[in-house]
Simulated assay, not measured.
Amino acid sequence: MTLDLYRGHLHDRTRTWTSLHPEERKRRATQAAAVKDPEVLWALTEAHLTQHAASGVLTSRHTLTSYRAGLRAFLRHAEQRAWNILRPTREDAQDWVGDMLASGRSIATVRVRIAAAAALYKALRWADATQAHPFETVVIPKDRRHGLEKNAPYTEAQVNSALRAAERHPTRSAELRALLLVLAHGGLRIDEALNLKWSDVQLAPPTPGLIVQLGKGRKSRGVPLSPRLRAALMTYRALPRTARHREEFIFPYRTWRGAARHVQPLFAHLSGEQFRGFHALRKAMGSRLYAQLGDFGAVAEVLGHADINTTRGYVRVGEERARTAMDSW
């Protein structure tokens, strides 16, 4: 029998690298970089993020998943172009940016992948395997499209259509309705929704609402419940819990991919429409709330936006005002 470190929790997995002698950490990192081993290099990057990034062990699962995918994409490119990862040339990083843009990748995707690769190099420098900073001066074009052009919010009719499709689901009807309304009426990010606990929800009058614990930026906020969302949560809560549910969490899905597998088919029947991700549901809530309040500050507070300009990307204010004015011409 041999002993090994427990790797279940993020902090425990980090010890695989932090407990090593510096010379051994350098040797393993150098060896993994030489053969472009995605598993070992991700483990190293994850350990560095956990130990030295701003959020540390509180780094969100979504961020880790996104960085892991970006790192794999970088390593595939490095393999195809025969990069020496520990000694990249000055032009290598910018060449990868050009390749991604030329292949049709969105600017947002390019930024995430560059961030993941930069995180890898921070980890390699931490392990003393290299001193390279290949992404420090890389240039990525600004995305000048309006937020609604990149991913428009679902209309109220489209949300209602998806809700009707959820009602017809043979086994998850109440669950899917509750999730859709938490996103489209509560305006939660998908990670926030999947981390909701029943203890965060107040269903009884006079002030039904929910508390988003540690949203983006580790900030908590209160969100009021619409009558439909409150009714959906009450119906869902009354059902017996099954083995697939996760302790005190409201929804059983651990990742957005797991949730998307069940939500995506609800949009398949929409004419000329396809599932555009969960953020379009959040934008639907922000757009609808602004249309009623006309107050970016109030909408930003409910959505948990630190910068009100982010909220502005949910609504075409000038176009709507012009349309209203011109209707009387």
Results as ranks from 00 to 15, higher is better:
Leu101Gln: 03
Ala280Met: 05
Ser161Trp: 04
Trp329Arg: 15
Met1Val: 12
Arg76Ile: 10
Gln274Val: 08
Ser287His: 09
His146Lys: 08
Leu194Met: 03
Tyr253Asp: 12
Ile308Thr: 14
Arg288Tyr: 05
His77Thr: 00
Gln213Met: 11
Ala116Met: 00
Arg254Met: 11
Arg25Cys: 10
Glu149Gly: 07
Ala119Gln: 06
Val138Leu: 09
Pro153Cys: 05
Gly304Ser: 10
Glu156Arg: 10
Glu39Ile: 06
Arg113His: 04
Ala152Glu: 08
Leu58Asp: 12
Ala325Ile: 15
Thr89Met: 11
Arg90Trp: 11
Thr155Asn: 01
Pro134Thr: 01
Ala280His: 08
Arg15Thr: 14
Thr65Gly: 00
Asn160Pro: 04
Leu3Thr: 15
Gln202His: 13
Lys219Val: 02
Asp327Lys: 15
Ala119Thr: 05
Leu176Gln: 13
Val212Glu: 06
Ala325Tyr: 15
Gly286Phe: 09
Ala102Glu: 10
Ala284Asn: 10
Leu289Thr: 13
Gln213Leu: 11
Gly304Arg: 01
Gly294Val: 11
Asp12Met: 14
His21Val: 14
Thr255Ser: 08
Thr63Asn: 00
His262Trp: 12
Pro252Glu: 05
Val317Cys: 03
Thr65Arg: 03
Ser199Val: 12
Leu64Tyr: 00
Leu20Arg: 14
Ala116Trp: 00
Met326Arg: 11
Met100Gly: 13
Arg13Glu: 09
Leu225Val: 12
Arg244Tyr: 10
Pro88Arg: 08
Arg282Met: 01
Leu194Val: 01
